[in-house]
């Protein structure tokens, strides 16, 4: 740990792995792994995360390429969705005898 990058030491970079469990479902984050390049990341992901038919499709992406919101930002960041109750169907009063609405 003397300031050299992991790659310089021969260590492989970190990838995040997303698996589509079956057709019709989204890819879901399942974990991470190390690999020398994208192609190796895919085959490692297959061996590590789909040994029992857990997936029909895999995405891998270098962890450093992911941009994420932080917990600290949470309240103000998600504020725009908190104060618009009129976006929900239950906001509207419709008489019970109106059918199919």
């Amino acid at each position: 740990m003397s300031g050299t990058t992991p790659e310089a030491k021969g260590d492989w970079p970190l990838y995040e792995v997303f698996v589509r469990g079956k057709r019709g479902l989204n890819h879901v984050h399942v974990g991470s792994l190390h690999a020398a390049d994208d192609r190796m990341a895919l085959t490692h992901a297959r061996d590590l995360y789909t040994r029992r038919n857990e997936g029909v499709s895999i995405w891998v992406v270098r962890s450093e390429h992911i941009t994420a919101s932080t917990r600290d930002e949470k309240d103000p960041f998600f504020d725009p969705s908190a104060d618009k109750v009129y976006r929900h169907p239950t906001f509207y009063d419709i008489p019970d005898d109106v059918p199919h609405i």
Binding site: L14, L33, L48
Partner: peptide, 23 residues
Amino acid sequence: QDEAGHGLYLYAAAETLGADRAD
């Protein structure tokens, strides 16, 4: 092979806490 897989799932979990795999 599963035991190796279990080790790797767990190393991945430790890395989410800022641990370094090589370390």
